[in-house]
Structures are given as structure tokens and as C-alpha cells.
Design a protein around this nucleic acid. Structure first.
Lengths: 218, 218
DNA sequence: AAGAGCTCGATTGTTGACAATCATTGTATG
DNA sequence: CATACAATGATTGTCAACAATCGAGCTCTT
């Protein structure tokens, strides 16, 4: 019947719900509500939720319930630090391996960012942005880095969705992406990693700077 | 009643069972057997198992069951690559932060490795070895890196337990650990990361070299 | 009026039973 | 004899009912 397990399916829907903020940070996940919403019973739903607990996207308070995590500034920094580790390693691998197909995919992802930048839709832009970073890790071929990145992207998306309007200066975005791909194409491993790290530091700086008129919590 | 959720508790027991090879790679996890063994019903057990699926320690074949992953040589390389990313980033953080307590913990972990090396017990040795690498990441204070490392250590342990006897030349181990801590203490971020990466490359080389008389699968 | 204790509704945690699927074995058929 | 097919046992997937726990509101006491 199903090619994919229900837990995996529901887990994916929960992730996108968290990304899109239909499940807000700090909110409790009602088993009754969600199971009705997804058309399954509480059993499979709970299995799916345990997956997100393992990812760290949900926090468990025994006998109380499961809650969407809230990201304070320290968490946001941690997310970007972990991303630097994962994406830096992934980009280094690609720079070493020099697979033409990977470079083509990366260029395409760059162009997609440029395209949605012209459209002016902030949601499409951060979609394209994160897609580039996802492709970057996927192309490395590392199953483990890819798995880690999956979670990190959800957490990044949580921040970006919170500040959709404040996401202002994305002109540098395209250029920084292209420079990363350039470094990869040149096979310069050290330069590649440095540019990835700098790009993420810049993105973090823009994020917390845009956020400091808001309260710290997201 | 419980301070910790049962799913979390059972998940931990499953992890150690996988590490200690009482659940062998490729083996199917029988829900009936395990639930009886842990004294819980199938519901909580299945929730715990979904956690390990998310970690990538179990692979799911819908309507067939859950199986312990098998690590071929490519997987082992991937584990060590991911560890280099995670531990390299963690060590860099510590080198930057310069927290005295962290250095003390690391020194202690180094000494523990040296101690269990003298005892000659290979299990105790790899315990101490992995404990050092765990402390390294814990001391960084990054919740996300720590979570990733938790899984990577289980996978590393799977390999080491398979080759308990072949784990021969650990004299360099203590020295390499100490040199990492030295670099951290000196606050030299680049040197720190290089030594972490080299240490893991060496460990990987020793591992696959010891393994190449065996078949590739673990 | 403030606080301790109690009751009740709601939610989570757990279980055993039922349905669906898969692998195996035996059987019939070309 | 080989292959397709069907019956069977075992295992996973799902569900609804039951138990346990929590939180809010009420009452009683001082």
C-alpha cells in the first residue's frame, strides 16, 4: 500500500508546519487535534512526533506534552555555527571531488536565487536561498551531513519566516553564493571553506541585526 | 512518576545494545521480543525505535520491519568525515573561548585514555577514546553539535567493537589527543582544527587498514 | 482575604485487540 | 520438473478503550 512509512510522512508534514509557523514556537502539539487533522490515530502521530523530538525540533515535558522549540539568540548562533560545520565540510568535499554535475546543480540553484530575488517575494527568496544550501550538502554525497542539514534548515527557516519582512539586503546573497561555487570550481578547498563560513557569519549578522528591534525570542 | 519519557529511556537502551552488538548490524528488531525484554508494550517501543530511525541507526522497510544499519567502508568514511566536521568545529570553539574548566575536563579525559591503555583492555580503551571525543564536543557548549556527535559515536563504536582485537597501535592515540588539547590551550584555532582532522584521518586509516583482511561489511 | 486541599475535566501514557501485509510452505497444473 | 497459485503462520500497522497525570477552579479553613 504505502511505499513510505506513515511516521515518516507525518513527520515531514510536522516539519513543514513548523517551518511555515502554522505550529508556532512554544506551542503545544495537541495529539487529538493533530491526529484528527492528519486523519490518523494517535499511535502513528506519536511515532512521528518522537522523530522530531530526536531532531530537537520538539521538546518533551513528560506527562505534559510536546512543544515546538523556541529559538533565542544563542540558539540562532548555534544553528549557524552547526551549519558552518556541516556546509563547510560538504563544500570542501565537493571542491576536492570536482564532479561536473554538482557544479551544474549549484549554478542552477544560484540562478534560482537570483530569479526569486527579482520577483521580490521574500518567501520565495528564502526558499531559494535554503534550497541552495541544501543542494550544497546533498551534492557532497554525505548521507550524514545531509541528514543533519535537514534539521538545520528547518530551524533556519523558523528564523527567516519570523523575519520575512525584515529580510532586507539580499543583494549580497547571490554574489556570495556565486563566490562559493567559484571557489569550489577552482578546487580551492581552504578558500571554499572560508567563504562558506564568512557567508554564514554574514547571514547570521544580518539576521540578529534585523531582529534586535524585536524581542529576542523567535 | 517518570522523570524521563519512556521512549527516551528505551531509545538509550537500544543505542547501547547496538553499540555492544547485542543487536547486530543487519539484524531485524522484533517488536514482540524487544517489548517483552524491556517490559513495555509495543507502543512505547515503536516510539523509541522511530527515534533511532531518525538518527539513521535503524533503517525502515515498510511492512517488513526495522533493521540495524550495516556499515560498509563508504559509510565508515562518511562517519569519520562527519565527525571531522563536528569535532573540528567544536574544538575550534573551545580554542576561541578559552574556558579553563573545559581544558581541565579534556586533560582528564586524555589521562583516562592513557590509564586504560596501560590496562590493556581494548573495550575500556575505546570507551575512553570515545569519551574524550564526546567531552570535546560537550565542552563546546553547542547543543546541536552535541546531538550529532551522540549518533556519530554510536556508529563509531559499532566499527570499533567489530574490530576489538585488531585495534592495535594505540600508542599514538594518547599523544594525538594531547596535541589537540595543546593546540586548544594555545588558542590556535587553525592548528586545532588541523590536528583534529588529522587525528580522525589517522584513526580512519588504522580502522580500514585493520579491516581489509575482513570482509568489507561491519 | 490568603492559602491549602479537593474535585473535575482534559490531556498524555499505555495496553491489548484487530486489520493488513509479508514470507513460507504445500499443492496443483502446465 | 518447474512454475504459478493458494493457504497459513508470523510480523507489522492501526485503532479505540483504559489508566495515569496534570491544571484549573472551587471550597473550606484559619
Amino acid at each position: 500500500m504505502h511505499r513510505e512509512s506513515t511516521a515518516s510522512l507525518i513527520a515531514r508534514q510536522l516539519r513543514t508546519a513548523i517551518m511555515k509557523r502554522s505550529l508556532q514556537p512554544g506551542a503545544q502539539l495537541s495529539e487529538a487535534t493533530l491526529s484528527a487533522q492528519f486523519g490518523v490515530s494517535r499511535g502513528p502521530l506519536r511515532e512521528a512526533m518522537q522523530r522530531l523530538v530526536q531532531e530537537g525540533l520538539l521538546r518533551s515535558e513528560p506527562n505534559r506534552g510536546l512543544f515546538v522549540i523556541e529559538l533565542d539568540e544563542a540558539d540562532i548562533r548555534d544553528v549557524y555555527l552547526a551549519r558552518a560545520a556541516v556546509e563547510g565540510a560538504a563544500a570542501s568535499m565537493i571542491a576536492r571531488a570536482q564532479v561536473p554535475a554538482a557544479l551544474r546543480e549549484l549554478r542552477a540553484a544560484c540562478d534560482a536565487v537570483a530569479d526569486s530575488l527579482e520577483l521580490g517575494d521574500p518567501t520565495a527568496l528564502s526558499d531559494a536561498d535554503l534550497h541552495f544550501h541544501d543542494v550544497l550538502v546533498q551534492c557532497s554525497g554525505s548521507r550524514r551531513l545531509a541528514r543533519m542539514q535537514q534539521t538545520l534548515i528547518v530551524e533556519t527557516r523558523m528564523c527567516l519566516t519570523a523575519l520575512a519582512n525584515a529580510y532586507q539586503q539580499p543583494l549580497e546573497l547571490v554574489e556570495e553564493h556565486r563566490q562559493i561555487v567559484d571557489a569550489i570550481e577552482a578546487g580551492d578547498v581552504k578558500l571554499t571553506r572560508r567563504r562558506v563560513e564568512q557567508h554564514l557569519e554574514e547571514a547570521l549578522r544580518r539576521l540578529v541585526h534585523a531582529d534586535d528591534d524585536d524581542e529576542g525570542y523567535v
